[in-house]
Design a protein around this nucleic acid. Sequence first.
DNA 1: GTAATTGCAAATCATTTGCTTCGTA
DNA 2: TACGAAGCAAATGATTTGCAATTAC
Lengths: 149, 149
Amino acid sequence: MSEDCKQTLSELVDRCRTGGMRRTQALESVLRLLLESDHPLTAGVIAESPGLKGHCDPATVYRLLLRLEEHGILRRLGLRDRAAHYTIRHSHTHDDYIVCTRCGSIEELEMDCPVEALEAEIAKKSGFTQLDHELEFFGVCPSCAGAEG
Amino acid sequence: MSEDCKQTLSELVDRCRTGGMRRTQALESVLRLLLESDHPLTAGVIAESPGLKGHCDPATVYRLLLRLEEHGILRRLGLRDRAAHYTIRHSHTHDDYIVCTRCGSIEELEMDCPVEALEAEIAKKSGFTQLDHELEFFGVCPSCAGAEG
DNA sequence: GTAATTGCAAATCATTTGCTTCGTA
DNA sequence: TACGAAGCAAATGATTTGCAATTAC
């Protein structure tokens, strides 16, 4: 893990601590895993990862993810999948994704989110508060398109 | 059900028939229900509806929804919920939604989707084909905000 | 020491599947 | 009549929960 990442990890753990959470092995492992991943991960994948598997009960992973989401550390995404996906919530902005409907691969989109600017307007029109949004693209990735024509 | 709705229902059934599906009671009930609803419905809700409950096995509803999605008649949405939501797929455009994170109410947004125009660009950049997308807003609805402050 | 956290097992919830029977084309 | 569709029950997969045993602070 990069120095930069370590830095962020300890910052995240500090935020958890401030929020009243305890510093446990599982907490650090889950956060490290999500920091190192370039796309959202499911609870199942996290629980099966080398860092957690065998050291931590799956139920603990689910509870941890839930708590981290409530504390605003993580963002939960649907991604049209039955299993929820989690990713670190960055304060400044959020990410949008493109998902392959054949192989399920997930890529983060490198673009300014085109919807960010609309939120205030939507909030005003709808009367909703604490607005947030999720934008995902679905399609067939080049590799899958090549494999099947 | 309005005349307009009946019209659309028979059109939809025709499209199903053309696609090789048979005209069954369950098919019509599911389509009618979705046509009359102003927001996406889950398989569970559909199976429990007066028109279907007791007349049709839940497994049939699941299979039917799956088939209808494959035939392009329905669109499946995640809506950050554990259960999948289904809505009629309109040819011309699609809808975006705003969901209350407290009470779960779902409203269709009355606006031109701001992302539609980006799809071609995203396709080009990413190399993905058959692009499609899902945009959802989440927040606290006026009623829930009022109830709790 | 105390409250937060974990492990383990059992319970739920949403969905899928196997297989036989039924009904539409 | 034949093949798609439905019914029923059992299997999956994801997640949640109860409760006693731990552990961080």
